[in-house]
Design a protein around this nucleic acid. Sequence first.
RNA 1: GGGCGCAUGGCUCAGCCGGUUAGAGCGCCACACUCACAUUGUGGAGAUCAUAGGUUCGAAUCCUAUUGCGCCCACCA
Length: 896
Amino acid sequence: MNEIPTRYNPKETEDKWYKFWEEKGFFAAGANPEKKPFCIVIPPPNVTGILHMGHALNNTIQDILIRYHRMKGEESLWMPGTDHAGIATQNVVEKALAKEGLKRQDLGREKFIRRVWQWKEQYGSTIIRQLKKLGASCDWQRERFTMDEGYSCAVIEVFVRLYEKGLIYRGSYIINWCPRCQTALSDEEAPHHELQGNLYYLRYPFKDNPDEYIVVATTRPETMLGDTAVAVNPKDRRYKKAIGKCLILPLINREIRVIADSMVDMEFGTGAVKVTPAHDPNDYCLAKKHNLEFVNVMHPDASMNDAAGDYRNMDRFEAREVILEDLKEKGLLEKVVPHVLSAGHCYRCHTIIEPYLSKQWFVKMKPLAKPAIDAVKKGKIRFHPGRWTKVYLNWMENIQDWCISRQIWWGHRLPVYYCSNCMKQADQSPGQRVTGSPVKNKGIIVSRSKPEKCPDCGSSDIYQDEDVLDTWFSSWLWPFATFGWPELSQDLKYFYPTAVLVTAPEIIFFWVARMIIAGFEFMGDIPFRDVYIHGTVRDIEGKKMSKSLGNIIDPLSIIDEYGADALRFSLISITAQGQDVFLSKERFEQGRNFANKIWNASRFILMNLEPEQARVDLCDYFQKEKLSLVNRWILSRFYSALKGVDQYLETFRFNEAVNTLYSFFWHEFCDWYLELIKSDIKRNENQVVMYKMLEKSLRLIQPFMPYIAEEIWQRLAHEGESIMVRPWPHVQEQLIDKKCEKEAESVFEAVTGIRNLRTSLEIRPEQRVKVSLYPHAKAKSKLLNESSGLIKDLARLESLEFLSENKRPAACVSAVSKDADIYLHFSGLLDLAAEQEKIKKKTTSLSALLRAKEARMKNAEFVKKAPKEVVEGEKESINKLNEELSRLQKMHDELR
RNA sequence: GGGCGCAUGGCUCAGCCGGUUAGAGCGCCACACUCACAUUGUGGAGAUCAUAGGUUCGAAUCCUAUUGCGCCCACCA
């Protein structure tokens, strides 16, 4: 056995075991009526993705759950796959094209799409490979991609069904437009960030009196070119006379009217608002109400268009500067005041969003949201931690219609067809997003496949809509479309609803909420019972990890340096109840060290194990033999730890689970148990218990650190092919023995007490010493007597004697442990003063404690109202303190 | 403007339903490589649990307010 190295080397084990598991089919799951299903669908990473710490954390949690439930005998399926990530992927491929000096338009749609598929074939499995490095036990044979043929059918099916129900409509509205990606975005894809900008005060002269003007305040002066009115509050005295009058819009010289609307906030700016219906959602509403003209002044790339007159073709921000210059020159720029504003940003490229008037497709969300709200309110779906429930409900209850059309090429093309003939006659005026009543426009055909003829006019001049669907319009079907919906397969019926969804807070709206909606709409049931929201991974300064900040800790380099198990362990141990995770590289040392500890403890056991002795059934053995205190103790501790791990995993408290395991294995099993049995390791019962404890501990470790668990388990005598398919241990309540634990602790305290004395006297570790113990009670006397061998070993004693009367032997230093007075025979020079000082210090702190407790007992209210156990506990504690204090006093006196 | 989270030893954090002599990891100090592991062991120092009120027999733990930091949502032009 000496060939086992003293250091665990993850590199030699990880790939080997992963391959083994996969080849053996241990990850596979399928409908099995004999067993309870447990299913998790992976949040599908983008095909463009590379594994970052957020993924690592997210997937480690899922893997722990899956491995745990698999061992518990449930049919556990982890459904994997990737997301086509429309805009993100298109951007990546466009960047690659740009290197060749090409634009996607140069290739044309078809060729470009082929290029993206090629890219996907080549690089799209990167993240899957990386998940495998992490140890993810997904059923890879089921891997899905949101653009798979079957999955695409589900997407089309959903669109058609919703359209037919009147829940999808088309219309012109102000949407979030990314000028760089040149597509519409949903509200969720355009998060607002604060910007330091200015509030510009512009003068708009009256037509009939050019020397008079109204001053309007704006943060985006370039949009003034599209102004078609100025609005004031009807109650605003300052502008009473101006209402209905005509102004001349500077630079453009358009005549615009002053209108009155109560929407205008009199307090803000000057109380007069420029109205730009085509570039601001509020102004859009105003314009609808007051029948104003819509003047779009920008091209899709946010450069100014012909309507911008002399400013045409300037970029919007360049135009801003020039316009300000020109206004200043004309004396029409009154002042500029610094102003913090918040503007939408493209979540893909961070470009500032332009509110833009365009014709898009929308899903009417209000009616869909209702069952999804109820399900969460009634607790059919539970968020962990619970506080996210509020966030979810708040969003759901204020839900807005969802803009689902994107002006890009990569994605599911809308199943929408137009009849050229009918479209010529169709009314092109903007619809009403607010009322959202679907208008079945003539000439628009929504169909699962391309229609031959127009049902209205019979023309065969039919073309498909150019737009594709929002990526999330396919992701929201993930929990059932991955099982082949709309077909109701055996697997779908068996695994749906899934058990848990594990994800980050950022995508509650994007994905979680919409999956719940889709679940009800298309499956008539919740998609999952529990939603575990973990924290965001941040760097040690609390910043989000991002490429641009350069503060990324790459999980793969951590795996390379410390091992996947170490990565998993460390990530989990610092993930408290969905709190954000602050990471520095050093954190992974703890995981690596723990793996090494497991390795070396196992190495020690393997070197000392007599396999034939160890293979005894523990329960039988326990009944036949009366086990020693230490063996009963470690069994009790093990099952207590197991109980904790079970409980913590069921309640999604992963850090508690892992910490319980860590402290059991390291500080109890290694630090005490193995040390305690070391001197008598060949004894049969020690062999049995040592073996069983290791084997069972490994099973507990397996979900968290699967590689090292497998590597050791395989070297150990074992039943079955792999630890990952062995059953999870059951809690043996009859082996949990609190009395025994107390007794053991009493022995440990004696040892610690002696070690303490040794250190304070600077006695060399190799030097053996004589100790006398005076046990405080008869029972303790028996216990300590029986354990004298252990105490001698661990405290490195030459001899240990027990005193029957509490009399201080000569030439001793003393200490008080929980159940005994300790006298260490010391012939060297004693620092009496120091000893006394120590005793004094302890006396002081104990007296303070005692006084506090006595005061509590004197309080009649406390005695009357506090529960009996608490009062009894206090009494007992006071007695003990008194005893201890008098012992300390005695020792102090004797030292003179 | 609304909502949420966090403030506990030098650092990073645990501490569930109120009763503990307030824990851990890292760091620090001392000692130790003969016996699985120096990615180790043994022992130690170090905390008025952000502040102010309140509820309670009793609060780090519940309530209110304040301060600081962070996040999310919202049509302040």
